[in-house]
Design a protein around this nucleic acid. Sequence first.
DNA 1: GCAAATTAATGATTTATTCAAG
DNA 2: CTTGAATAAATCATTAATTTGC
Lengths: 176, 176
Amino acid sequence: MGSMKVHQFARGFWEHEPSLTLGCKRLRPLAPKLSNTDNTPTTVPPFDLKSFIRPESGPRKLGSSDDKRETAHVDTHPGGTRWNPTQEQIGILEMLYRGGMRTPNAQQIEQITAQLGKYGKIEGKNVFYWFQNHKARERQKQKRNNLGLNHSPRAPGVTTTTTISSSLTHESRVGV
Amino acid sequence: MGSMKVHQFARGFWEHEPSLTLGCKRLRPLAPKLSNTDNTPTTVPPFDLKSFIRPESGPRKLGSSDDKRETAHVDTHPGGTRWNPTQEQIGILEMLYRGGMRTPNAQQIEQITAQLGKYGKIEGKNVFYWFQNHKARERQKQKRNNLGLNHSPRAPGVTTTTTISSSLTHESRVGV
DNA sequence: GCAAATTAATGATTTATTCAAG
DNA sequence: CTTGAATAAATCATTAATTTGC
């Protein structure tokens, strides 16, 4: 397999907007059984659950790393369930988050994925989801804290670090 | 806090492409109104991870660190405008929708996009978004119609006198 | 000590809301 | 106003922690 063009779906269509590799696997285990009474015009492909859950031999869309060298597998290589981040990965992600990154764009996701890939199997969408979830859940936490906040006018313990060096070259700051 | 809800109906079986921020010319103020109580982090990560936080977007030019780009001229590109579906495309999509398709998976999207590509420029995410929006807005319309039965402002242009009961087979929304 | 049962975290999807182009 | 595009909120589903009984 020399230079073979992968599916067009990977490259050609999303070239304008940065996109990331997303797997074509991992579908919900719920019954793929549609109500067959309706005529689904497009042939709903028979969902081969097993083949989807085993992406190893499946066709990759993009971002296929040259080698996967799973022979040694430092990590669990969970056999095709959901991503289970390692401690290093989490650490880096949290660092990025604390650094101000909230919704990285495709370029950033690509790079992050590449970096985190050194510590374990990971895909771009994992990074994407992680930021989504982390952001949302941090907000939840904060809100919860705010609700029960009418007790001590001053936050005990945590002195809100106002020593922020305000000016920073964070261009990736979309929200806030 | 276990949510024991069992859905027996076929729910989504779609891989969900993470719609990455394109960041081309999409500046969304969207004041999140987040209470700024929490972290205003802006602490430079001690590592070189800052390389992750590269300035976003920029078509393909890298190297220029500072991007104070003006939103002046950069929109004559055919990649910058949004998808404008043709009549054939809409027709096919609606046909598929009426046929029961609601959230096509990646495979299906791929095929649909390929087909629709014959009639005009289109990308996979367009198909994805179309289904999302169409589903949501059909629901809105129905709801509006149901609520405003006694209303008689003006004859609605579209006679969507069909399929009101069909959607009842779905779960009734749990409020909220 | 261990494994089944239970609970807590959190990854992955779906839905609702919002913004802006045409 | 219509509607493509994007994000946030809500929800589902799976894995890790943990409890419990032996």
